[in-house]
Structures are given as C-alpha cells and as structure tokens.
Simulated assay, not measured.
Amino acid sequence: MSETRHTRLLIIGSGPAGYTAAVYGTRAMLEPILVQGIQPGGQLTITTEVENWPGDTEVQGPELMVRMEEHARAAGTEIIGDHIGSLNLSSRPFTAKGESGTTYTADAVILATGAQAKWLGLPSEETFKGFGVSACATCDGFFFRGQEIVVIGGGNTAVEEALFLTNFASKVTLIHRRDELRAEKILQNRLLKHPRIETLWHHTLEEVVGSDNPRGVTGVKVRDVRDGTVSELPCTGVFVAIGHAPASELVVDQLETHNGGYVYTKPDSTSTSIDGVFAAGDITDHIFRQAVTSAGMGCMAALEAERFLASLEEPVDEVAAE
C-alpha cells in the first residue's frame, strides 16, 4: 500500500557517509529518515579485513557497517529498507519515490549513494573477490607484503595503484590490452622506471586461478590480443583498476556533475548546485574513496543541512510602515 512520508531531512544511502550523517542529523534533532538502498552498508559489506579504520586494529567490513547501522538506530534515526527509484529536485519539498511504493518528501536531502568499482565481469573474478581479488590497493595492499601481484588497467587509476602496491609487493605486473598507457605522462614515467614493476602489453585477463581450501588466488590466465594465445602468470593478488562509477543515476540530469558523473560540491562544502541538496562520500569523491573520508563528509553534510534548515525557519524582518 502506497503512502507519503515527510521528513525534514532525507538521507539516501547507507555507507559510512549515510550512517554518519544520520547520527549527526539525529543529534541535531532533525529526525532524519535514512533509506538504505539495494546494498545496505555499501562497498564495505564486500570487504574482508579493514585495518585503516581509526580505533580498530582490524575489523571485518560487514561487521563495521552493522555497528554503524546500530549506532544510527540507537541515536534515533528511522532507517528504512527501501530503494529510491526516482528523485525530483525541481522544487521543495523534494520528492523521492521508493520501489516499495512509498513517496518521501523532504526539506533537505543528503545523497550518500556511493560508487562502485568497475569489474571485468569474469566468473572467476567474482569467486575470489575478497580472497585475493580487489579493486582498492589502499584498502588491501597491506595484505600482500613480499608477494607477487598483478594490476589490470592502463589509466591513472591502474598506474597509481601499481606504484602504491610496490610499497608491499615483491613484484607488480601491470597488464594492459594496448601497447601504451592512458595515464598522465608523469605517472607513466614513474611506472616504467620502477624496478619492481613489469608491464605486460597486449594482454587481457582471461581467468583468475586459485584454490578453494583455503580460498585464495594462485595465478592468472592472460590472453594475448594479437594471436589469442593464453598463458599463466603466478601471483597471489589481482587488483582490477579500470575505474569507478558513481551511483549518481538519480541526479545526473538535475545536479552539476564532473569527472564522469561524480556530483560536484562547492569548495570546502558538501553543498551541491541545488540549495538544500548535499552530497557526501564516494558519490562526490573521485580522489580518496576511503571509509574515513566518507564518514567525515557525512558529518559535514549533516551540519550543513542543519544550518540550511535553520535558515528556512528564520523570521523575515518586517519593515514598519510609516
């Protein structure tokens, strides 16, 4: 049965940015509603060990997100397991329609829908996600100290990941389907001169090879695009670095975006191109993409939403008639 719910603050998304915004928004007495989306908890729910969350030497990604959700609920946030299918930002109150049939109206909106790493779509890639296959060198590179790993891609992301991984790996092989990189020249120069990086040109990833007990990567099969021959390389880690896609489908035609769909926010702010709409986390961050920076932006968004909503309630000065 369809219904309409109104809230002063609607938070769309349930990763670190969304849950942090919920805690701060609730403490500001805004009584926010948070709609979780199709993947409650976001990308951390498909991550295993997290060792860079302040206060936890090590924590499982899904466990961390459960704790964040519990914190938001304990603070008093109303959390709804729905997915927003459309969002109208043309007038206030803003209107969001959930796939459950519920319509949500709000005086302010925080977008925290995140982003998703782009994957190759291989069945073996899916099998070993979190068990040697990753899309985040900053998150998982630490686990491959002294090991041989491969990086897939040829743009800035791939080159930056390969260079970063040399801090841990004994050898990094960059696999690229062409004979030249798309990355910035300065990054290319650093990569090509690095003694622990080898570049395998004209190849694509065909299959991730590994064991089941315990589950882990032992190598990759790669295909030479020139003659179709397949060969195998030993490695224990595979980093897919072909970019990220922000989950901005709801607003890409309504808000100003940049860098392939990331929502633009004003300098030192989470404010977007529409007053009363704020963006936090990976939907706006194409540089850092870390849980801790997303949480920080969620805090900023809630504080800015609080100020915005307070400004709507300020009385208009009356000019006394003479």
Rank of each mutant, 00 (worst) to 15 (best):
H6D: 10
L10D: 07
I12M: 04
I12C: 04
G13H: 03
G15E: 08
A17S: 08
G18A: 12
A22R: 06
V23A: 14
T26G: 03
R27I: 13
A28K: 09
M29T: 07
L30K: 03
P32F: 01
I33E: 11
I33G: 07
I38D: 08
G42H: 03
I46Q: 07
I46P: 00
T48M: 13
E49Q: 12
V50Y: 01
N52M: 09
N52A: 09
D56M: 08
T57N: 14
T57P: 14
L64R: 02
M65Q: 08
V66G: 05
E69Y: 01
R73E: 03
G81E: 07
G81M: 04
D82G: 10
D82A: 09
D82T: 13
H83L: 14
H83C: 15
N88Q: 13
L89A: 06
S91C: 10
G98S: 13
E99H: 08
E99P: 01
G101Q: 06
G101R: 00
T102V: 15
T105P: 02
T113V: 11
G114D: 02
Q116R: 14
L120S: 09
K129D: 01
G132E: 02
R145M: 09
G146V: 12
Q147V: 11
G153M: 00
N156D: 15
E161M: 11
L163C: 04
F164R: 01
T166M: 12
A169K: 01
K171Q: 13
V172C: 10
H176A: 06
L181N: 13
R182E: 04
K185E: 15
L191W: 13
H194I: 01
R196G: 02
I197K: 01
L200F: 01
L200Q: 08
W201S: 09
W201I: 02
H202A: 05
T204C: 06
L205H: 03
E207A: 00
N213I: 13
P214I: 14
K221H: 01
D227C: 12
S231T: 15
E232T: 14
L233T: 06
C235P: 00
G237I: 07
G237T: 09
F239C: 11
A245V: 15
E249I: 03
L255E: 02
V263E: 05
Y264Q: 07
T265Y: 02
P267A: 14
S269D: 14
S269Q: 11
T272V: 11
I274A: 09
D275W: 00
I283Q: 02
T284N: 11
Q290C: 04
M300N: 00
A302Y: 06
E304C: 05
R307L: 05
R307W: 00
